[in-house]
């Protein structure tokens, strides 16, 4: 049987043996549950104290959980991943790993999997809170699964971005800065572009459909959640109609597209990370 990736094993051991991980997890869960409780309380108050076991309230609480979980993942995935390789450089342990027989792909996969595993732990720990929304009602298992897939794809992409910057920088703080700047740049700039582009390029953008918006925002998990709510309301969970140059074609639903785009960019980041760690060979050297 093939051994578990040693980098993954070491990272998991190191991370789970320190109290920092437990406190971080506790803090994240406290944040998510607090925000959900606040929103439920607001819903309850708006019903004039009447019991709110209806679909609307359950769905609102569910969405607040999903968005808060996404915010937490947006923060912890790049921050943890950014310190993975640059942190080894700071501790002066990176040279020793590079000199072993581990391939660059093993190092990158180990580091990526370790951070992703922590995000998975967080999302798994969130499950009991998600389950409460079933008691209230308004959420089905399909939607829950869909949101889990979006959150985990986002976590994976942001982890890969963090690891990529980690391979490029000497210190964890620099890598974290670059990773957060990249992610926040995409999250903040894309919606602005969506608003501004029809004004700037009126002849180029067909503003009568939402297709170009959906395609541009496919990398934006928060926008994906909003568009997916529309799709769920219209019961078009798996497919979507896209109008391109006046032609309407059926395509995958926005969330499927978003997941595919996330995985594509995750692969790009991972390949770039592996290339960064591959020792340069000088052809023709004797």
């Amino acid at each position: 049987m093939r051994d578990i990736n040693p980098v993954l094993l070491r990272e998991l051991r190191g991370r789970l043996r320190t109290p920092r991980s437990y406190w971080l997890l506790c803090g994240a869960l406290f944040l998510v549950s607090s925000i959900s409780l606040l929103i439920y309380s607001a819903e309850y108050a708006s019903m004039n104290g009447q019991p709110t076991f209806n679909g609307s309230s359950g769905h609102t609480v569910f969405l607040s959980l999903v968005v808060t979980a996404l915010v937490v993942v947006t923060a912890i995935a790049p921050i943890m991943a950014a310190g993975s390789i640059s942190g080894e450089r700071e501790r002066q342990t990176f040279d020793l790993i590079v000199l072993t027989q581990l391939r660059p792909i093993d190092i990158v996969l180990g580091k990526t999997a370790a951070t992703f595993a922590y995000c998975l732990l967080f999302v798994t720990a969130l499950t009991p809170f998600m389950a409460i929304t079933f008691l209230i009602g308004g959420v089905d298992i399909g939607e829950l699964a869909m949101m889990y897939v979006i959150i985990m794809s986002t976590a994976f992409l942001y982890t890969c971005i963090g690891v990529y910057w980690s391979t490029r920088t000497q210190t964890a703080i620099t890598a974290t800065g670059y990773a957060l700047a990249t992610i926040l740049g995409v999250l903040l700039v894309l919606p602005v572009l969506v608003l501004v582009l029809p004004e700037v390029l009126p002849g180029w953008i067909d503003d009568s459909t939402t297709t170009w918006r959906q395609l541009m925002l496919a990398i934006h998990p928060y926008a994906t959640i909003i568009f997916t709510q529309d799709a769920i309301r219209m019961s078009t969970v798996w497919t979507n109609q896209y109008t391109i140059f006046g032609v309407t074609v059926a395509g995958p639903a926005m969330w499927v597209l978003s997941v595919a785009v996330s995985w594509f960019w995750s692969c790009v980041c991972s390949i770039l990370s592996i290339r960064r760690l591959t020792p340069p060979t000088i052809k023709g050297a004797s």
């Binding site: 040693p6 980098v7 094993l9 190191g14 320190t18 501790r91 342990t93 020793l96 072993t100 581990l102």
Partner: peptide, 19 residues
């Protein structure tokens, strides 16, 4: 270079696995 929370045996085991 120090890895936190690792014993001497685990330290060698990690590099042996890497090898």
């Amino acid at each position: 270079g120090v890895y936190e929370s690792m014993t001497a045996t685990e330290y060698l085991d990690f590099y042996a696995r890497c090898g």
